[in-house]
Simulated scan of single mutants.
Amino acid sequence: MKRFLFSLLVTMAFAFVQARSYDRFTVLQWNIWQEGTVVPGGYEAIVDEIVRLKPDFVTFSEVRNYHQTRFCDRIVASLKEHGQTYYSFYSDDSGLLSRYPITDSVTVFPLKDDHGSVYKMVTSFGGKEVAVYTAHLDYLNDAYYNVRGYDGSTWKEIPIPQTVCEVLEVNDRSLRDDAIRSFLAEAREDIDKGRIVILGGDFNEPSHLDWIRETKDLYDHHGLIVPWTVPLMLDNAGFADAYRVRYPDVLNYPGFTFPADNPLIAVEKLTWAPKADERDRIDYVFFYPNQQLEVEDVVIFGPKGSIVCGRREEEKSKDRFLLPQGVWPTDHKAVLVTFRLSR
Rank of each mutant, 00 (worst) to 15 (best):
W155K: 07
G200N: 05
Y219N: 11
D202A: 09
L137K: 00
R181F: 10
P231T: 09
V197A: 02
Y139S: 03
D172K: 14
V167F: 10
Y219L: 13
Y219H: 11
D220M: 08
W155S: 01
H222L: 05
Y144P: 00
V164M: 13
R244K: 09
G238M: 09
A187F: 01
L224I: 07
R244I: 08
V170G: 05
T154V: 11
I160Y: 01
I158P: 00
V197T: 11
G194V: 13
R173Y: 10
I225Y: 12
N141D: 08
H221Y: 13
A242L: 07
D210N: 12
K156I: 04
L251D: 06
G149P: 03
V226L: 06
D138H: 06
T229A: 11
E186M: 11
P159A: 13
F203H: 03
H208P: 01
A242C: 08
N146W: 02
Y139P: 00
H221N: 15
R213W: 10
V167T: 00
Y243V: 04
L137H: 00
D241Q: 14
D217T: 15
H221K: 11
R173Q: 15
E186P: 01
D177Y: 05
L224D: 04
D172M: 09
K193V: 07
A185V: 14
H208A: 05
L168K: 08
F183Q: 03
V226R: 02
R246M: 15
D192W: 04
N236E: 15
F239A: 03
V226C: 14
L232T: 12
R195I: 05
K156Y: 10
K156N: 12
L218M: 12
L209P: 02
S153L: 08
F183D: 03
I160S: 00
V226G: 11
S174M: 07
P231Q: 07
V250T: 13
